[in-house]
Amino acid sequence: METISFDGFLKVELRVGRVLSAEPFAQARKPAYILHVDFGPELGVRKSSAQITVHYTPEELVGRLVVAVVNFPHKQIGPLMSECLVTGFHDADGAVALCVPDRDVPLGTRLL
């Protein structure tokens, strides 16, 4: 495992957002959803593609808090311009479980 400095870690903007909408991403190569995530007044709403279809339905995702990297360059994924990277962990079968705060926190709060 490569080590990084604390200053290196601080360059990654991990922020809390709330999923406003989730829909199947029909054009994705692997099953995924298109998420619209609200990061509060400073950052606004951003789009992301998330391969989280095994553990979550679109209806379950709406209203959930998520943690995302918001300072990566935007990335074109098929017809979608992804504006953030929603984080998660692979389970024993390789499906993704979301990384989420265990309490309500203000939208846009930075992980430290």
Rank of each mutant, 00 (worst) to 15 (best):
Ala32Pro: 01
Phe39Tyr: 13
Ser5Phe: 00
Leu111Trp: 08
Val100Met: 12
Arg15Ser: 03
Ser5Glu: 05
Leu20Arg: 14
Asp38Ile: 08
Gly17Arg: 06
Val105His: 09
Val105Tyr: 10
Asp7Tyr: 07
Gln76Val: 14
Glu23Ser: 14
Gly63Gln: 07
Cys84Pro: 06
Ala97Thr: 13
Gln51Ile: 02
Leu80Val: 15
Leu10Pro: 01
Arg103His: 11
Val70Glu: 03
Lys11Met: 08
Val19Lys: 04
Ser49Cys: 09
Val62Ile: 14
Val16Gly: 02
Pro31Ser: 08
Thr3Ala: 09
Val105Glu: 13
Leu85Gln: 11
Arg46Glu: 01
Glu59Phe: 07
Pro41Gln: 11
Thr87His: 06
His74Ser: 15
Ala28Val: 02
His55Leu: 09
Ser48Pro: 04
Ala26Asp: 15
Tyr56His: 14
Leu80His: 01
Val96Cys: 06
Leu14Ala: 11
Ala26Glu: 14
Gly108Val: 04
Ala26Pro: 00
Lys47Phe: 01
Val54Ala: 10
Lys47Pro: 02
Gly88Met: 04
Ser48Trp: 07
Phe39His: 07
Leu65Trp: 05
Val105Ile: 12
Gly108His: 06
Leu65Lys: 05
Gly108Ala: 08
Lys30Arg: 13
Val66Gly: 05
Ser21Ile: 00
Ile34Trp: 01
Pro58Leu: 10
Pro58Tyr: 12
Gly88Asn: 04
Met1Pro: 06
Ile77Glu: 10
Ile77Met: 15
Cys99Tyr: 09
Glu83Cys: 06
Gly17Cys: 09
Phe72Met: 13
Ile52Glu: 00
Glu83Phe: 05
Arg110Gly: 05
Lys47Ser: 13
Glu60Tyr: 05
Ile52Asn: 03
Ala32Cys: 05
Leu10Met: 14
Ile52Cys: 00
Val69Asn: 15
Thr87Ile: 08
Cys99Asp: 02
Val16Met: 03
Leu65Ala: 01
Pro106Thr: 06
Ile4Ala: 09
Ala68Cys: 12
Ile4Leu: 12
Gly17Val: 10
Ala28Lys: 05
Met81Leu: 14
Tyr33Arg: 11
Leu111Met: 10
